[in-house]
Write a protein that binds this DNA or RNA. Structure first.
Lengths: 192, 192
DNA sequence: GTCTATATTTCGATAGAC
DNA sequence: GTCTATCGAAATATAGAC
């Protein structure tokens, strides 16, 4: 069985593609249906609203971030977070490499996500991971310099690595090659 | 005179606000007009098309980036770019501090900008600054490690500094305080 | 589950009075 | 320079046959 009930999966795949190409708002259900080879109405069998497609993709992104943040929460003393950070960044890099499209979606459609953030369905389950991340970076028990370093390391990974995988930011260089260098650079950045 | 002919300026201000809140595509002219206290039709007296509002904001962003990139082009030998980079990042930080909303717009609406990039009006004058930036990072005469460091430094500034100014990423810490630390961190990052 | 309609809303844009 | 009124297009969403 299963055979073709994974139309739902195919919808999500195509939607993710198109949302990254033209943005969430700039993508119509008609376009998704056409690229998928079905009609618009078929999409409504699988998702009640267009929003729900974006929401599901958001939740997957959420699951990825949660694994990392849980490891952050597991650190007993807040001041030990700094020591734990390099390993977490490595995990983050692995996730970015494996789920680049999802991270790209999140980065490029913050406006659309902000809209559905108010939604009950969204607020119910999960606490926003960005919110949890923010709380860590507001912890006064951690020296400000370390907190800025942690935030900066995330930005460094995002720009250097995401640019390398998708846009060929560095020309014809293998992604793993760039990833290794990013790891080295970020680790250096984190030893204050 | 001048008195209220700067409705044009107010439109741009409100549009920049809304584009950052809900994205370019997610913002309707009706919303802009409402927040401004005028009607939709009034907007069309100042701008022929919705695109033109975005385009004007884009051109301002462009003017900012051009100053920095020109200094990059002024470096004779490509391999000296690495040595010149720290000073350029400092200039970049200054611009981000002074024009945070414009940088946010550019970061959050890459898709919308890509659409108008094909436009004749846009292509005429200026070559896209991101394209010029990309070309530098593809220059094989510069060691890959240095190029990744340069890209990473931009990401570090964007996340740490933009987060600090807008969202209070680090709690109640002054922006200039964060900015100084970002400078230090990025300079460290750039001495290979 | 997917289709052919079609209802409903909203958007960008224009015309013309003031 | 701003308004009211409206047009045409495109979008989301629904109804009902198959």
């Amino acid at each position: 069985m299963a055979e073709q009930t994974d139309t739902r999966e195919r919808i999500l795949d195509v939607a993710l593609e198109l949302f990254n190409e033209k943005g969430y708002d700039g993508t119509s259900l008609r376009e998704i249906a056409e690229r998928l080879g079905v009609t618009k109405a078929a999409l409504y069998y699988h998702f009640e609203r267009k929003e729900d497609i974006l929401l599901e993709l958001h939740l997957r992104m959420h699951g990825i971030g949660r694994g990392i943040l849980d490891r952050l929460d597991a650190v007993e003393d807040e001041r030990d977070v700094v020591a734990a950070w390099p390993a977490l960044v490595d995990a983050f890099i692995d996730e970015v490499l494996a789920n680049r499209d999802l991270f790209l979606l999140h980065q490029r459609n913050q406006g659309a996500f902000a809209k559905i953030a108010d939604d009950e369905r969204h607020q119910a389950e999960n606490e926003d991971i960005e919110e949890r991340f923010r709380r860590f970076l507001s912890t006064e028990a951690i020296p400000l310099d370390d907190r800025v370093r942690m935030a900066a390391s995330v930005g460094a990974v995002m720009v250097a690595l995401m640019g390398a995988t998708g846009g060929g930011l560095f020309g014809d260089v293998s992604t793993t090659d760039v990833a290794d260098r990013v790891r080295g650079i970020v680790h250096d950045m984190l030893r204050s």
